[in-house]
């Protein structure tokens, strides 16, 4: 598989403070890559290195196979966490300026801006100043400016902070569309819940170190612990039924609804082989639910961090 970005042993210190310690990452082409970690973990420093705003002290970063160089800037789009626009400059002029700084010609930039302004319903704002705009509108313009030069790699640092839910959805759909068109996307956030639906790959950064990375589905598989949620419709008393089960299996918790004759319980299996337990259960009751519990990114994150801390 081709990688849009490869970081090898990247280290960055500010004085006595280590912002990144020996980080190695491989970001595949045409995927959404989640860069996760709490505030202050070093995500933004890493992103600034990719954008050549600051430089690593040690290590190497390859963009499309070659070491990062100034000409790559035209192929990267970056929406920083701390973002804004010139308050007293007109919207259109400002967008043109920022697009030209990314290397677009004036006419090309104008054409694409018109397309995006129509697409996101900001047509009439060309000659208004930013200070006259609502915050959501300004955020949309920032998004447009980020993607306008059709970069190969898009980097979003906390993209949804500051967006209202409706605009956040619009932007999310646009990001997914861009991915479909072949763009690689890095998505940096400390809010794990937004990761699950978007990212195919993730890396966890904690206290300047990478503690986990890989394909999200693989990670989840690795973090699965063979716990299943089961729902049964039974005729006999729930408690006695559970007691008979406990002789053979490890039951973590259970609850019985007498009126509905519904028994729900979680069960810990020794492996992910379910045939035995299913055969056993279906002999005695009607199974209406049997699902594996999959750890959320948040759970994985907390678990990994805890493991890491315990190792020390």
């Amino acid at each position: 598989m081709d990688h849009i970005l490869v970081a090898k042993n990247v280290t960055k210190t500010y004085g006595d403070f280590t912002a990144l310690s020996n980080i190695s990452l491989e970001i595949p082409e045409n995927c959404i890559y989640g860069l996760l970690g709490p505030n202050g973990a070093g995500k933004t420093t890493f992103i600034r290195i990719i954008n050549q705003i600051t430089y690593q002290d040690k290590g190497e970063v390859l963009f499309n196979g070659s070491p990062l160089a100034p000409e790559h800037i035209a192929h990267i789009g970056y929406l920083p966490e701390e973002r804004g626009l010139y308050k007293s400059m007109k919207v259109g002029e400002q967008a043109l300026y920022l697009a030209q700084l990314k290397g677009l010609s004036k006419s090309e930039a104008k054409k694409r801006l018109k397309y995006w302004f129509d697409r996101l319903d900001i047509g009439d704002w060309w000659n208004k100043k930013i200070q006259e705009l609502s915050k959501g509108m300004a955020q949309k313009i920032q998004f447009i400016v980020t993607v306008l030069h059709e970069p190969k790699l898009l980097i979003f640092d906390e993209p949804f902070s500051g967006f209202d839910p409706i605009n956040a959805n619009i932007i999310k759909d646009e990001i997914l569309l861009l991915k479909e068109k072949g763009t690689s996307i890095i998505f940096s956030t400390h809010r794990m819940e937004s990761v699950e639906e978007l990212c195919e790959y993730i890396a966890l950064i904690h206290k300047s170190e990478k503690i986990l990375d890989g394909k999200l589905s693989d990670i989840k598989k690795a973090y699965k612990n063979n716990i299943f949620n089961v729902g049964l419709e039974i005729q006999q008393d729930g408690d006695t039924f559970v007691k008979t089960l406990e002789d053979k299996f490890q039951i973590l918790s259970s609850s019985f609804d007498k009126e509905e004759k519904q028994l729900d319980f979680t069960i810990q299996l020794p492996s992910n082989q379910t045939a035995g337990v299913l055969a056993e259960l279906s002999n005695q009751a009607n199974i209406n639910r049997f699902e594996e519990t999959i750890p959320s990114a948040n759970d994985i994150f907390i678990q990994t961090v805890n493991n890491k801390e315990n190792d020390r």
Binding site: Q52, I73, I76, P80, E82, Q142
Partner: peptide, 18 residues
């Protein structure tokens, strides 16, 4: 200072050198 307080600075310096 204006570029700093309006937070456009990081957008700009991802395109040009400081």
């Amino acid at each position: 200072i204006e570029e700093k307080t309006s937070r456009i600075i990081e957008v700009i310096i991802s395109s040009v050198k400081p």
